[in-house]
């Protein structure tokens, strides 16, 4: 009599789970700091239950069918949550492939007396588990990419603050490389703030920009021209010696733009444009 792969495995469910758990726990790279053993057991139990309920002799013929959707779904969930928790791809891979090992061990016992059937069963199961492994990696990477995307958004959001340093003076410290997309964001933010606060002077501080090439300079010039069109004056500050060197070597003409070495001198210039004076208080003078 021919044994049913699925039925045999379903009968061994508890043993499989134990085998799988011991295989996972035996791995040197087990991350107990990220997930406790109880959680791991719960997660594994859930997956193995769904998997064993889904497989049957017939379904194993076609592992691409929609019958395996519940398994894929649960595996994707586990994989994505692992990606977010900071598991490495290797750890997630071992999680799935140790299940394969446990299943094969179960099969070996089921088909002890029938080697040709054993080979067939093992081939089927390993084909299924490989496809599940692929799904795991795909979703794992997707999860990681989501994390990266979210961080990129965050960086671009927090990296362009417009600061009101004085009545009528805005400062915009630019940190990181200026590309076209960021220039657009910077420009829009700055112009919007100029309208909202009614400021007449904007200081662009580029001391946090690692390198200025002709493209970056072009973007800066554009921003300055746009602020001028709005009716505000734009000062560029934070020109480091290296930046000055590259700008001159590249032959970029910044002579139409007010440039200052530091934010402090830019602010001083802004004060003089607004006809403001900053003085030491008289009292302090008397104390000295």
């Amino acid at each position: 009599m021919k044994l049913d792969i699925a039925k045999g495995l379903q009968k061994r469910k508890n043993q499989l789970l134990e085998d799988w758990m011991s295989l996972q726990l035996a791995d040197a790279g087990l991350r107990e700091d990220l997930m406790s053993n109880e959680e791991l057991r719960e997660q594994s139990n859930e997956l193995i239950e769904v998997l064993l309920n889904t497989i049957s002799e017939k379904k194993l013929e076609n592992i691409e069918s929609a019958d395996f959707d519940p398994v894929h779904e649960i595996l994707s969930g586990i994989s994505i949550s692992r990606a977010r928790q900071g598991f490495s791809p290797r750890e997630t891979g071992i999680y799935v492939f140790s299940l394969k090992e446990a299943l094969i061990k179960g099969l070996q016992e089921d088909y002890k007396d029938d080697p040709p059937a054993l080979i067939e069963a093992i081939l089927k199961i390993s084909k299924l588990m490989d496809s599940l492994g692929v799904v795991t990696f795909e979703t794992f990477i997707k999860g990681r990419e989501e994390v990266i995307l979210r961080q990129t958004d965050e960086i671009s959001e927090i990296s362009t603050p417009v600061i009101r340093v004085w009545e009528g003076i805005l400062a915009l410290p630019i940190i990181g490389t200026l590309d076209s997309a960021r220039t657009q964001v910077v420009m829009e933010n700055l112009l919007q703030q100029i309208v909202e606060s009614g400021s007449t002077i904007a200081i662009l501080d580029i001391s946090g920009v690692p390198a200025v090439d002709s493209l970056v300079a072009q973007h800066l010039i554009k921003t300055v021209a746009a602020t001028r069109l709005m009716g505000a004056e734009c000062i560029i500050s934070g020109i480091r010696p290296e930046i000055a060197q590259t700008v001159v070597h590249l032959g970029i003409d910044l002579s139409n733009i007010v440039t200052k070495a530091t934010l402090a001198s830019a602010l001083k210039h802004a004060f003089s444009l607004l006809k403001l004076e900053v003085k030491k208080a008289q009292k302090e003078k008397a104390a000295i």
């Binding site: 420009m187 919007q192 554009k222 746009a226 069109l229 709005m230 009716g231």
Partner: peptide, 18 residues
């Protein structure tokens, strides 16, 4: 010229009209 909208300013700059 007064009261230019930010979007208008950006458009003019992109068009190369200063």
């Amino acid at each position: 010229v007064v009261g230019m909208q930010p979007a208008v300013a950006i458009t003019l700059i992109e068009l190369g009209l200063e």
